[in-house]
Design a protein around this nucleic acid. Structure first.
Lengths: 103, 103
DNA sequence: TCTTTGTTGACTGTTTTTGTCAAATTTATA
DNA sequence: TATAAATTTGACAAAAACAGTCAACAAAGA
């Protein structure tokens, strides 16, 4: 099971592409410092940045987005004892909403 | 399936106990306006408030907390197409963390 | 050593959130 | 209806969270 954070994943991708922070930051138009912090989890990523980076590295966008979203979800439940139950309830509700969408 | 929000649930509980906002607000030491907004979903609830209200109404704390947490989770994924997948990934990760807790 | 790369922290301004309050509205009851 | 009780609403200010900019610093390589 993959236990890496999205930040770690993005750093890995950047290194595989042999791109320095400086260049990637320029490509997606943000400050080097911010990108550095995002890769290390010191700053939260945004959906937009994730999309731009997926494009930059030509990497599966959905996989990155799922990782990104799941991390935000995990942040919400932190170390809550009831986290797992809450996840299951949320899942049921999402399914319910999907079935009744547009209604 | 229960599709009510935690706010609606809390309002229902308050009414079942025949308590006016004024009194409950005084009991848990917050402003009436805030409690009113929380019940109607205009203000986000906090874990602390949920705990205090469960106590005030003598209602199952875990049930309310799960509702509370799942609502925050749903807020994170909103109308994301990948929301359901992200939930599943989060679930796997929580389980993984549980198994390896303390390590 | 010089150069490139990455990290860190301070500083600024902006947005978001929070608490407080009073006026306005709704609801219930005498 | 008139009065009181209950609830809602919006304005305001304080506090907290967040985002972008920059320069100094540290690490690693050529």
């Amino acid at each position: 099971m993959s236990t890496e954070t999205i930040g770690e994943k993005l750093r890995q991708l950047r290194e595989e592409n042999n791109l320095p922070l400086r260049k990637v930051a320029a490509l997606i138009d943000i400050d080097v410092a911010i990108l550095s912090k995002m890769e290390r989890g010191e700053r939260k990523l945004t959906k937009e940045i994730v999309l731009k980076l997926a494009d930059t590295y030509k990497y599966n966008v959905d996989e990155l987005l799922v990782l990104f979203l799941s991390e935000r979800i995990m942040y919400e439940i932190q170390d809550e004892a009831l986290g797992e139950k809450a996840l299951k309830v949320a899942e049921r509700r999402v399914k319910y909403l999907k079935e009744n969408k547009g209604k």
